[in-house]
Write a protein that binds this DNA or RNA. Structure first.
Length: 234
DNA sequence: AAGATAGCCAACCGCCACATT
DNA sequence: GAATGTGGCGGTTGGCTATCT
């Protein structure tokens, strides 16, 4: 099959190319040459607008393809190789809490990408867990996983529920206030879940701070503390 | 040895939300 | 307020490789 495909639909154009001109965009596996071009471009310009990257790098790839290649493969911070037992454990626990929110889960695993985590889950952990879950469910002692739906909270929404001061920039709670309320409910569920998991008591003021400060911070966050608690208690 | 099957994983697709014009 | 551009996400696909028959 040819590595070139014609992007002809108007909807795909907005994603594929900056101008609505019929053009050939290379798809499929990346070559070493393309990798080098992309790396050099990022090294030289930093992560600029992804829509500019193909042009700057001299690549005949769409912005999404470039972004994905960088984030999932070329970024030097990415850790390769086997997941260790601690990571397995953490993924399983976070998945219990968050469901298939791979980017959030990956955010707690330094050097791992959402794609890696997702693939690892689908190919290893889910299979590993199915027999266990069956066993546990037979004892009816596991709750259905809490799966906060992707909900997003814009700055506008944030101000509209300002008394709650919700800022979930990474999990992006949805723009309507009702959903934000559901999100807050879910935080309550998460607390319950953590308590179930850990049999530890988390001070409710921490939960509130947790909601205020968000899930994704690079430094030590409440998440780290929670996960640390979870790990400690297991 | 060769074909069939399963597993893994890189990459793509479609969609969404936010920012900008 | 509408249209457009952009970044980001989760689900899915398809090709490659390993294993099985």
């Amino acid at each position: 099959m040819s590595p070139f495909r014609v992007s002809a639909t108007s909807s795909s154009f907005s994603q594929m190319s900056p101008s609505p001109v019929l053009r050939l965009v290379r798809k499929g596996a990346w070559t070493q040459v393309e990798d080098d071009l992309l790396k050099r471009c990022i090294e030289r310009h930093g992560v600029v607008r992804w829509s500019r990257v193909p042009q700057l790098a001299g690549l005949n790839r769409c912005r999404k393809s470039c972004r994905l290649r960088w984030l999932n493969y070329l970024d030097p911070r990415i850790r390769r190789g086997q997941f260790d037992e601690d990571e397995d454990d953490l993924i399983i626990r976070l998945h219990k809490l968050l469901g298939n929110r791979w980017s959030l889960i990956a955010g707690r695993l330094p050097g791992r990408t959402a794609n890696d985590v997702k693939n690892y889950w689908n190919s290893h952990l889910s299979k590993k867990l199915i027999p266990q879950e069956k066993k546990v469910r037979a004892c009816r002692c596991i709750a259905a996983p809490t799966r906060p739906q992707p909900r997003k909270c814009s700055i506008k929404t944030k101000t509209s529920v300002d008394d709650q001061q919700v800022n979930m920039s990474e999990s992006r709670p949805s723009a309507d206030t009702a959903n934000c309320a559901v999100w807050l409910d879910d935080l309550g569920n998460v607390k319950e879940m953590i308590e179930q998991l850990t049999e530890a008591t988390i001070p409710s003021e921490n939960m509130v701070r947790f909601a205020h400060e968000g899930l994704m911070q690079d430094g030590v966050s409440l998440w780290d503390n929670f996960i640390f608690d979870i790990q400690l208690s297991s």
